[in-house]
């Protein structure tokens, strides 16, 4: 899994990462490289500094300090010696490499008319290790089917950050596209605004997202959904992190066309999600059939499925439960 990352690291850092214990390597989440500052890794939700011998320590003074030259070499390899071909990525602040890993970068920004045009003097890298968990959606998938015709329901997945939303979404895509459940392989389309779900490198998905899946990479969600509706005639559209007005318009449009949408949103629980006006409107319009609350623990994913119909019904009966958050949101 770390092969692609080891491959791009300069020699000294490569040696250090290779010396990390197998236990850490297996659960590595991030490698943070900052010029002339301590090398840091995060794993199992905690962080450590790393010494020259690949030992993890908590004292930053003992840690290895990557040099300017190493950072330059790292940048060259991430960009395939071609920073000029990465303008779009630099504007967004991260570069996706083979294997689906994302490398966030920080430095001095170049402005043009008040907007960020790119980054120069790059001095900080955050290598986020992407993990493909095949079968992550196995338990959830059958529960997304329902309704009068027992078909796939439009679903909104909500969870706090770092709980595996994207991993779950990716596996759902794969399973739907392969037809793992009910042997009915569906035409799936992904709008991958942040190149996270499919992690495309030059248009080709790094992850297995299924044989019947089309990806609109690095595309604004609302626009991408509209384009896919017109061009690829999907049965399901997968989209990450909705929440803006345009997103809602596009989701409504998809619903009109009879296309199902599986989307995610940042929120700790359903009450908080209901507090966001765009999401609340979509739920009230029944654009989604069900909402899934996601939590991750040691065993894996924990989810709670809430039917939107029942939720709205409940809300009407004891109008106090959601109305509080409603006021706070508006």
């Amino acid at each position: 899994m770390l092969d692609h990352i080891i491959h791009i690291l300069p020699y000294e850092l490569k040696t250090i990462v290779n010396q990390l214990s197998q236990h850490i390597k297996n659960s590595l989440e991030e490698i943070r490289i900052r010029e002339n500052r301590p090398l840091e890794i995060s794993h199992h939700g905690s962080f450590h500094y790393v010494t020259e011998k690949g030992k993890t320590v908590l004292d930053s003074r003992q840690a290895y300090h990557p040099t300017q030259e190493q950072c330059r070499k790292l940048l060259e390899r991430i960009t395939n010696y071609s920073l000029y071909a990465m303008e779009e990525e630099l504007r967004r602040g991260y570069i996706t490499i083979a294997g689906g890993h994302r490398i966030g970068i920080a430095g001095r920004t170049i402005l043009e008319g008040g907007h960020v045009r790119g980054i120069r003097d790059i001095g900080g890298f955050n290598i986020r290790i992407a993990r493909e968990v095949l079968g992550a959606s196995k338990q959830l998938l059958p529960k997304l089917f329902g309704g009068p015709s027992d078909s796939l329901q439009s679903t909104l997945i909500i969870s706090p950050p770092q709980q595996g939303k994207t991993t779950l979404l990716r596996d759902l895509t794969r399973a739907l596209s392969y037809g793992d459940y009910r042997k009915h392989a569906m035409k799936v389309a992904i709008v991958d605004e942040r190149s996270e779900i499919a992690a495309c490198v030059r248009g080709i998905p790094s992850f297995d997202v299924g044989p019947r899946t089309d990806v609109m990479d690095a595309c604004p969600k609302a626009e991408g959904m509209m384009m896919l509706l017109r061009s690829m005639s999907p049965e399901v559209i997968i989209v990450d992190e909705i929440g803006r007005v345009e997103d809602a318009v596009a989701i409504r449009e998809a619903a009109h066309c009879g296309v199902k949408v599986i989307a995610t949103a940042h929120a700790y629980n359903i009450q908080e999600a209901f507090g966001r006006s765009e999401i609340r409107t979509l739920l009230q319009e029944r654009a989604f059939g069900s909402v899934v609350e996601l939590k991750r623990n040691e065993q894996g994913f924990m989810h709670r499925i809430i039917s939107v119909d029942r939720m709205l019904e409940q809300n009407r009966q004891n109008h106090g439960f959601f109305s509080l958050t409603k006021k706070a949101g508006s």
Partner: peptide, 9 residues
């Protein structure tokens, strides 16, 4: 070579 934006290159 390679390490700046297209305009600069």
């Amino acid at each position: 070579l390679g390490m700046s934006d297209a305009e600069d290159q």
